[in-house]
């Protein structure tokens, strides 16, 4: 796999949420607003990059039998650090993301990539994989939250995470027709189900086209 392929892998082909179906808990919970989604995406990407680098660096000295507990301790340390830093510098984002910040520890994406990629590849490749997967995750949650926020409230508002009062950009399309249940938990399941169905439909369509082209 070329370096560029490793990077692109996490974005589309093996997108952690849309393809691998990992990290669903957070995908459903924090996608109520685009601001939250971007904040979480950045946090997850940061942890992913650091954890992939560290685990790739120590992969040769960790005894095989305890590699999972060791990876977990490394990831837990990183996540707790991110939690403390967010509490200090981005308090509003910290409050809206709530328990899902520490829950990044058990986000299958991080442990999954550590186990399946970083423990078997060199530093630079692991870094690329982390960036790709992190961006893929962020892309996915932004898409889901944009859908939910748009349909649920009629518009999208982006706040500055470091200064919650400041609105970076906002637009409002159809407040009167908003279906507010999309911002509720039930709406989260529906949105994700619909989006996954659409993506799967698109993949089937492309696969059928490829098959037809072959037959011809």
């Amino acid at each position: 796999m070329s370096k560029l392929d490793i990077l692109k892998n996490g974005l589309f082909k093996e997108n952690p949420i849309f393809t691998l179906l990992l990290g669903m808990c957070s995908a459903l919970a924090i996608t109520t607003t685009v601001t939250n989604a971007i904040g979480m995406g950045v946090a997850v990407t940061a942890v992913l990059i650091c954890s992939n680098i560290i685990i790739s660096a120590i992969r040769k000295i960790v005894p095989n039998e305890i590699r999972i507990p060791v990876y977990i301790v490394v990831i837990a340390t990183l996540v707790k650090s991110v939690q403390l830093i967010m509490n200090a510098y981005t308090p509003e984002l910290y409050t809206s993301l709530g328990v899902f910040i520490p829950l990044i520890v058990v986000n299958c994406i991080i442990l999954g990539r550590a186990e399946s990629f970083a423990s078997k590849h060199g530093l630079f490749d692991s870094l690329l994989d982390a960036i790709g997967m992190g961006l893929g995750y962020t892309l996915a949650v932004v898409v889901i939250s944009a859908f939910r926020e748009l349909v649920g409230t009629g518009g999208i508002t982006l706040n500055n995470p470091l200064n919650a009062e400041q609105v970076l950009f906002s637009f409002n399309l159809f407040k009167d027709y908003a279906i507010s249940s999309f911002t509720s938990p039930a709406g989260a399941f529906l949105s994700l189900g619909l989006i996954l169905g659409v993506i799967e439909g698109y993949r089937n369509f492309k696969a059928n086209r490829a098959k037809k082209a072959e037959v011809k």
């Binding site: 305890i66 060791v70 301790v73 490394v74 837990a76 340390t77 650090s81 403390l84 830093i85």
Partner: peptide, 19 residues
């Protein structure tokens, strides 16, 4: 193995204490 895990935990404790 237990000692290795203990060392890793201690190191992470130090990092966290700094943060």
């Amino acid at each position: 193995l237990a000692i290795f895990l203990a060392i890793v935990s201690a190191l992470s404790g130090l990092c966290l204490s700094a943060v």
